[in-house]
Nucleic acid binder design. Structure first.
Length: 851
RNA sequence: GGGCGGUUAGCUCAGUUGGAAGAGCACCUGCUUUACACGCAGGGGGUCACUGGUUCGAGCCCAGUACCGCCCA
């Protein structure tokens, strides 16, 4: 099939790849073709599936999603092209605290407080928000080209999903792993909720360190304690010293008196106390400090709370301070102590202070009644799964990080004092507590007000999205999934928990491979963040350079370490898409479809064999790089092949035959183009699909075209080396011309045997090589005698030849020194020594040529 | 405080088992070569953070120092 007139015209006038014109149209074709929506048939062993890390419905697509999506899509597309039944599960996360707070903030701008409108009305408004944002996020993934199954979109608060969550909770409850306890939690006064350890960020802060004298009972002595939080002293229930500290050994078991309050505090001994810090005596406040809480539990101390959930002092703080904010109380307590003469020192102290990642407020450690999940039993098999390789974590170092954390896992506080989320399936009636998937029978039951931590529902994402707990066809076909790519910051929050629940509830690990990708930082090396204003909008980059360019750029800048966003890499991607487009124009506009589509196993032209060998080598290496998740090198291999080998050399070498209408080269080119497009498609889907539209072999969309499998029979290192030699000669001649200042238009004459090199050497270097010229050659280059010509600038040449000679002589000296070293010759492997000798020979012959 | 990672060309980054350092961008010199100036050809540019050690040979291995970053407490 030759190009029809319309197609030819389109190719002729489109001299640049224009992503904005094509991308939406192409994506619509993929959707119409239903390529992303597989039947739930077959089994997970043969099929390929990936569950997207569900983006939060709080925001829009950011660079992290774009990177993550590019990686997943590359693998998903490659496996789909390999003919596997492939599913990429799409969905969003309700993101409890985050979503509730953005909606709350929005309402506040309209002067609405959520407590005024009530739980039901509030959550209805959040759902409305969710609908808007889920639609936007979905469209943004489509802009990126993500080949998710848009018909199987899931949300962590859907009815079916909620059923799965209740089932998991109830089952853990019945196993006794879920329990309710008064425990120290990270209280976030901003969201008025407990949050998990993993949602706390520590920041360096300068505070005042107060030294307070606690008089020892029936003695003249005082114990001086140092604290940054004097306002919590009303909750002190002991003073602790280190048992190994000789200064206080005699006081252990005695009591001291709490200033301002007058309470008797036992003086206890605990290993935790740092002898070096302050005076070595520590006030113990089990109600308001994490470490003190544990010391208190060890010694059976009373737990007093003087700070309420609103961040204000309670009645228990005494009427002098009750109702004050924590900050106000600190000032008031310090003043009162000063008045009493109990404050012996104040100094500045820099330490690390916990803040809520969500609300940004300082965490108030409080004791409160919360639901917890005990983790050891769930962690054990999840540790094993990584140890024995059923789950493989790449890069390797993260495996160790995962294992360390899992081995020291702590109870997980799963309750949150929010409205937006899965309401905990527990009901109370008097002292009775019931947990079940459905409300209990009978009257008088009241459901728990709290909701579950968002991560409790995301923890079951890979199987809950497939219909669990029902035994669906989807589960059978697509669980476990194959691959998960994630940012390392959610390795514990999310990945570890999925492995635990997967094993516990779905009977198998949730995925085989976890790839922890790098963080793309802002151009200046800072973190990309909305609040810093350092974010780069992927949609803006797509508008400007095209989705293929962004995908290529992100993949090639990704690495095992954090990297700065590189505009140059995105431009490289744009250049590559343009190059593919134009190389294809050259081929498609000048070549007619051959009668036979196959390419001979042994084509006549050596350059044809060469490019086919290079193509198959590239296919082999790109495929294996993608298999080991080395996206950056895969992208670079493709770039080098297309630019350097295919375009700069092969197409230039082949041009005369292209224009002559050579039959064999038509076969070679169309074959090479078909395979190149297929190879590149997983990384740059749009431009390749668009080019494929014009390819005479096209029978359907490229998105489902077979992915090339490397044909080893076409590969020949020997052949590659021989063409590489002629390429090197060409470059040598070109370099010499430039050195000699020969204008590009002038064709030089050179004395030599043209049959010893391929035709292109003379053509591409613009040197007319033949034997039998009259006249003397002025220089010898690569064995050819260059004849005098009007274009030669002999002075410039002499200067530059001198420089070249100096460099060669220097190299020669180095190698001779090496070979003169007896122990090198004796001890180095013979092939290394031989190589050095060859190098020396080459250098010497080039020096001779220079004259 | 514990752990991990980084320091290579002006910039951003690669460097497989130790054999003498690469890419892209930027820079310089040419080129309206009928696929592409988002292009082509040629070129300059590095005490591989520092100090010791192992080795015939170290960017790579070992020990230490400095600075930067991340995770956990």
């Amino acid at each position: 099939m030759a190009l029809d007139a319309e197609a030819r015209q389109k190719l002729e006038e489109t001299t640049r790849w224009q992503p904005s014109e094509a991308e939406a149209r192409i994506f619509a074709e993929w959707i119409d073709g239903d390529y992303f929506h597989p039947e739930a048939t077959g089994n997970a062993e043969d099929n390929y599936s990936v569950a997207i890390p569900p983006p939060n419905v709080t925001g829009v697509l950011h660079m992290g999603h774009a990177l993550n999506g590019s990686m997943q899509d590359a693998l998903v597309r490659m496996n789909r092209m390999k003919g596997k039944n492939t599913l990429w599960i799409l969905g969003m996360d309700h993101a409890g605290i985050a979503t509730q707070s953005v909606v709350e903030k929005r309402l506040k701008e309209d002067g609405i407080d959520r407590h005024e409108i009530g739980r039901e009305d509030f959550t209805r408004r959040v759902w409305q928000w969710k609908e808007d944002y889920a639609t936007r996020i979905k469209q943004q993934y489509q802009r990126l080209g993500a080949s998710c199954d848009y018909e199987r979109e899931r949300f962590t608060l859907d009815d079916d999903y909620a059923r799965a969550v209740r089932k998991v909770f109830t089952s853990l409850f019945e196993k006794g792993l879920i329990y309710r306890d008064n425990y120290m939690v990270n209280w976030d006064p901003g969201s008025r909720s407990a949050i998990s350890d993993l949602e706390v960020v520590n920041r360096e802060m300068a505070d005042t360190l107060f030294s307070i004298d606690y008089p020892v009972e029936s003695s003249d002595r005082v114990l001086t304690v140092a604290t940054v939080r004097p306002e919590t002293m009303m909750a002190d229930t002991a003073v602790a010293v280190n048992p190994a500290d000789p200064r206080y050994a005699d006081l252990i078991g005695e009591h001291c008196i709490l200033p301002l309050v007058g309470r008797r505090l036992p003086i206890i001994a605990d290993e935790h106390v740092d002898i070096e810090f302050g005076t070595g005596a520590l006030k113990i406040t089990p109600g308001h400090d994490v470490n003190d809480f544990e010391i208190g539990r060890r010694h059976g101390l009373e737990e007093i709370s003087v700070i309420g959930e609103d961040g204000r002092m309670t009645e228990a703080a005494g009427e002098r301070f009750a109702g004050m904010t924590v900050g106000e109380a600190q000032v008031a307590v310090a003043a009162a102590l000063r008045e009493e003469g109990a404050l012996s020192a104040e100094e500045e102290y820099v330490h690390s202070v916990p803040f809520s990642e969500r609300s940004g407020e300082r965490i108030e450690p409080l004791i409160s009644l919360q639901w917890f999940c005990r983790m050891e039993e769930l962690a054990a098999p999840a540790i094993e799964a990584v140890e024995d390789g059923r789950v493989n974590i790449t890069p390797d170092q993260w495996k160790g990080v995962y294992l360390n954390w899992m081995r020291e896992i702590r109870p997980w506080c799963v309750s949150r004092q929010l409205w937006w989320g899965h309401r905990i399936p527990v009901w109370y009636r008097g002292d009775e507590v019931y947990s079940g998937e459905q409300p209990p029978e009978g009257d008088g039951w009241v459901q728990e007000e709290d909701v579950l931590d968002t991560w409790f529902s995301s923890a079951i994402w890979p199987f809950a999205t497939l219909g669990w707990p029902d035994e669906t066809d989807e589960l059978k076909a697509f669980y476990p999934t194959d691959f998960l790519t994630t940012a390392r910051e959610i390795l514990f929050l999310w990945v570890a928990r999925m492995i635990m629940t997967g094993i516990e509830f779905a009977g198998d690990v949730p995925f085989r491979d976890v790839y922890v990708h790098s963080v793309i930082q802002a151009r200046d090396g800072r973190r990309m963040s909305k609040s810093l204003g350092t974010g780069i909008d992927p949609l803006g980059e797509i508008d400007e350079h095209g989705a293929d360019a962004l995908r290529f750029g992100l993949l090639s800048m990704s690495s095992t370490q954090d990297v700065r966003y590189s505009d140059a890499k995105v431009q490289q991607g744009r250049d590559l898409s343009n190059k593919l487009w134009n190389a294809s124009r050259l081929i498609l506009m000048n070549i007619d479809e051959p009668e036979v589509r196959t390419v001979p196993a042994d084509p006549q032209a050596v350059e044809d064999k060469w490019i086919l060998s290079r193509l198959e080598s590239t296919i082999a290496s790109v495929t294996s790089l993608l298999d080991e998740y080395d996206f950056a090198h895969a992208a670079q291999e493709i770039y080098t092949f297309v630019f350097s080998e295919l375009c700069d050399w092969y197409l230039e070498i082949a041009k005369p035959r292209i224009y002559e209408g050579d039959g064999e080269i038509a076969q070679v080119l169309l074959h090479a183009l078909e395979r190149t497009l297929s190879l590149v498609h997983p990384i740059m889907p749009f431009v390749t699909e668009e080019i494929w539209r014009y390819h005479p072999y096209r029978e359907g969309h490229l998105v489902v075209h077979p992915f090339p499998e490397a044909e080893t029979a076409r590969r020949s290192e020997q052949l590659e080396a021989s063409i590489d030699h002629d390429i090197a000669l060409t470059r040598q001649l070109r370099g010499w011309r430039d050195m000699a200042g020969v204008p590009p238009k002038i064709v030089l004459d050179a004395q030599g045997d043209a049959s010893k090199v391929l035709e292109f050497v003379g053509r591409l270097s613009r040197v007319n090589i033949r034997s039998g010229f009259d006249g003397e050659s002025v220089a010898t280059v690569a064995g050819f005698g260059i004849l005098a010509s009007e274009g030669l600038d002999m002075d410039a040449l002499t200067d530059r030849l001198g420089a070249r000679r100096a460099k060669l002589e220097n190299d020669q000296k180095k190698i001779e020194g090496k070979l003169g070293n007896q122990s090198f010759v004796d001890k180095a492997p013979p092939e290394v020594v031989a190589e050095e000798r060859e190098k020396l020979v080459r250098l010497k012959s080039e020096l001779v040529e220079l004259g």
